[in-house]
Design a protein around this nucleic acid. Structure first.
Lengths: 135, 135
DNA sequence: AAAACTGTAATAAAATTTATTACAATATAA
DNA sequence: TTATATTGTAATAAATTTTATTACAGTTTT
């Protein structure tokens, strides 16, 4: 399991705290305690989903592109997900076995349903709600 | 992300199909297409949670220890989970940063809540429901 | 022109996951 | 009672994924 969700949420929470001021990837990386290059890569993704914008050059950095109340955590999850929520066997199950032959399709529908429940839960909370907890 | 959940569910589905007959780890591994030693390790865990029993020696193998209708997928998930559901940053966030200092506790409560929603969803379905799809 | 940034590629290192090998212990059955 | 097929388990290796590092071009500010 990678750490893209917590890293992204950490970034967004810091940007919310900055109240529109640009924040450098070095500063973000220092709070998260990971390599700044990873932060910049994650910001590429957050930008792709319209959560943040960045400014190049000296004094540059990133800032929130929408209000924290308009970013919900379900959307953040959707922006970073890659794996199947409950894991997947990389090897092809045996097609000669009646169970093996069909299990991936049934797992997939199970995962889709479970992921939907997860996203619904996450979507109840916005970045503003989350950031408000830091006092 | 490892594949313990799909592997466990695959094992359980095969055992359900065997209707009480013992099934060897070699057979299970052949359907799943993974190494038999991994299957045996996973079976140690499934046994620990009371889902299956095993018989050693020639003609040995495993079989369901309860009816498939009494095993729900939320319990299977609980038996194999190890990571935080949405990933975790292995590095300690910066304790000098007000956000870094508190984020892990807030993430944890977020995860607990999200995981609960996920488990509730999975628990709606038993192994019998899942296995019934293979026709 | 110097400085402080972002963007990005290439590579290395670390961590995790899966596979393999080996063999003791156990149970069946010839 | 011996051969055989199996589980249980440890040790190790291989493969994959994740994270870190290095390097540097491009951008903006001062």
């Amino acid at each position: 399991m990678n750490s893209r969700f917590p890293v992204s949420l950490h970034i967004l929470t810091l940007l919310d705290g900055a109240k529109g001021e640009v924040v450098s990837s070095d500063f973000l990386a220092g709070s998260i305690n990971i390599n700044p290059v990873l932060v910049r890569k994650e910001i590429v993704n957050l930008r792709k989903y319209g959560f943040v914008e960045s400014k190049e050059g000296k004094g540059g950095g990133s800032f929130l592109a929408k209000h924290a109340g308009e970013i919900n955590l379900g959307d953040v999850y959707k922006a970073v997900r890659s794996d199947h929520i409950l894991g997947q066997n990389k090897n092809e199950p045996n097609p000669k076995c009646p169970i093996g032959r069909q299990i991936n399709e049934h797992l997939l529908s199970l995962y889709n349903d479970a992921e939907k429940a997860l996203i619904e839960n996450l979507s109840k909370q916005t970045l503003a709600d989350f950031a408000q907890k830091f006092k």
